[in-house]
Amino acid sequence: MTEPMVRIRGLTKRYGGREVLRGIDLDVPTGSVMCIIGPSGSGKSTLLSCINHLERIDGGKVWVGGELVGYREHKGRLYELPERHVARMRQRVGMVFQHFNLFPHMTALRNIMEAPMRVRRVPAAEARQRAMGLLERVGLASRHAQFPAQLSGGEQQRVAIARALAMDPQLMLFDEPTSALDPELVGEVLAVMKDLARSGMTMVVVTHELAFAREVGDALTFMDEGMVVERGHPRAVLTAPQEQRTREFLSRVL
């Protein structure tokens, strides 16, 4: 069997004394879409931030593309890697945030060009051309000169997806990408994500959009109180949940 894109074993994470992740095991095969659902405070977003080491982990291990994240293993000990090594790893992992986090002082185009130019040293003309291509892909070519504040929430999130794709990631992490959007704008963002999934991108999506999980997801994980409660094929988990807690959650949100 081939190495999964993401492999997580025994992951724990504490904030102060509170354990927010309590021994997570998770595999995301290359080219698949993993959706993670669960009540707020269940640790889903924290789990996502541990995959690209935006959060330091307290125990367990995370591998992306077969490479240990954030640490170097030597003689049975884990040594924390310097920030520049971690930064290199993060180039391969795109992330999309609930509140978009576009750079407000740059145009849509500039937002997308920035990382390739500053991190990869791509020449400006080439970065611009690629950025325009990506804007076209998310249907926003005509909006390239706008600043984030001049775009709707849905447009901002599509630019944010294009920005992440500009680094040619092997893996995309989505942290509740539609939760901050007005209901009528959710569809356009999900459409871009569906398109991305169809193109074979490996994706981990923390979401409340159960319909999206059912339609696009290859696997579904239900988390509660820092643990994986149930996992399986989306249709199976959503229509015939095995665990009591999953049933309770689904009855509340459906």
């Binding site: 931030s49 690209n52 935006l54 920030e83 520049r84 930064a87 290199r88 790893m89 993060r90 180039q91 992992v93 795109g94 992330m95 945030f97 509140h99 986090n101 576009l102 750079f103 920035e114 990382a115 500053r118 991190v119 944010a160 920005r163 992440a164 680094m167 992490l173």
Partner: peptide, 21 residues
């Protein structure tokens, strides 16, 4: 906002670049 740093880190930028840019 903290999210700006997180977004820049997620793109693989180094701390000095994040501060300056």
């Amino acid at each position: 906002p903290r999210g700006q740093t997180r977004a820049a880190m997620a793109l693989g930028m180094r701390p000095a670049t994040i501060f300056v840019r």
